[in-house]
């Protein structure tokens, strides 16, 4: 990797100032994605700003019954946090399956949300794709078995790599973004961006001099949630497709639903058809079936990933069953 200078600020404003200190500057969280990218020359910053000591690492109750999670919280802490386990169990479950114990010990909430895609063409220095300023997506007509089946009309066929992003969109979280000139809040659903030729080199709206500092979860209300990941093997790997469902309940019936899919699109993918068919239904086996069917309506597989339609349907079905308290 290219040599870089290192800054270790102890508070947010120093960290934000350091991001504007000239040249290419990148924030360093747990480093589990960033260091690999530097070693492979996918990114060649002049300076790293270590943000673990500068950003908040707690989960604190908000005034309106929600929860505010600092971006420096480690993934294992999210997975074990009593309030998250109790009120946002799909988020705890997603955190508990990221990578391996070593990755969960080091990896942060901010880093998980802002990691770059796992596409094997993107990860190889030799393939100069759209995301690296090139003029093609090698996955479009290449080895695309792990690529997108939704939202793939644009220039890049990646799937978004973050496991936390999916339950966070499903729970209606917001992200606090800060820069040296101010701060803003963005809904998780609006943070991640589908690739266009103008935006293809990034996966979200975060500016280079901004930090994602907090994840803000609304009060869950009377909801049931479920999360299910389909994996190729039992041990550590990225899931091939997964789903979080969050169901607002009215007695035994579903008032409204959020169904969000992971590893199938360049962003966490809202399955709006599935949300529609769940509305007003009893939460039972039949609901799981129709939600699974509706969730994959409109999927456009690439040459090698039609199998993802079937496992996505299964992921949604089992996530609904999990929300119903059934073991799946």
């Amino acid at each position: 990797m290219k040599a870089f200078a290192y800054v270790n600020p102890s508070n947010e404003s120093d960290a934000l100032a350091a991001l504007r200190s000239g040249g290419i500057v990148r924030p360093l969280g747990g480093g589990q994605d960033l260091l690999a990218r530097l070693k492979d020359y996918l990114d060649e910053p002049d300076r790293l700003v270590s943000v673990k000591g500068a950003l908040n690492r707690e989960a604190a109750a908000t005034g309106d019954g929600g929860l505010r999670i600092g971006a420096a919280m480690r993934l294992f802490e999210v997975a074990e946090h009593p309030e998250i386990l109790k009120r946002y169990p799909a988020l705890a479950e997603a955190a508990s399956t990221v990578g391996s114990p070593q990755i969960r010990h080091q990896g942060t909430v901010g880093g998980n949300l802002n990691q770059r895609p796992r596409c094997w063409y993107f990860r190889q220095e030799e393939f100069v794709c759209f995301k690296k300023g090139g003029n093609r997506c090698f996955a479009a007509d290449g080895e695309n078995q792990y690529h997108s089946i939704f939202g793939n009309d644009g220039p890049s066929k990646i799937v978004h790599p973050s496991s936390l992003a999916v339950p966070l969109v499903a729970y209606g979280a917001r992200f606090r973004l800060a820069s040296a000139s101010g701060e803003r809040e963005v809904a998780a659903a609006d943070y991640f961006t589908l690739p266009s030729m103008q935006t293809v080199q990034k996966e979200n709206v975060l500016a280079d001099d901004e930090l994602l500092t907090h994840v803000i979860l609304p009060a869950p209300g009377n909801v049931r949630s479920g999360h299910y990941e389909v994996r190729f093997k039992e041990s550590r790997d990225w899931p091939m497709a997964f789903a979080t469902v969050v169901l607002a309940m009215n007695g035994p019936s579903i008032d409204s639903a959020r169904v969000v899919l992971g590893a199938v699109a360049p962003v966490p993918w809202r399955a709006e058809d599935a949300e529609r068919v769940l509305r007003g239904r009893l939460l039972d086996d039949a609901a799981a079936d129709v939600a699974g069917e509706a969730a994959v309506r409109g999927a456009k597989p690439l040459a090698q990933n039609a199998y993802k339609i079937r496992i996505t349907r299964t992921a949604v079905k089992r996530a609904v069953l999990a929300a119903a308290g059934r073991s799946v």
Partner: peptide, 15 residues
Amino acid sequence: AAPVTAQGPAALGPG
């Protein structure tokens, strides 16, 4: 030595 940032702690390295 790398230039010092305007505020906060100095940058260390790249040497």
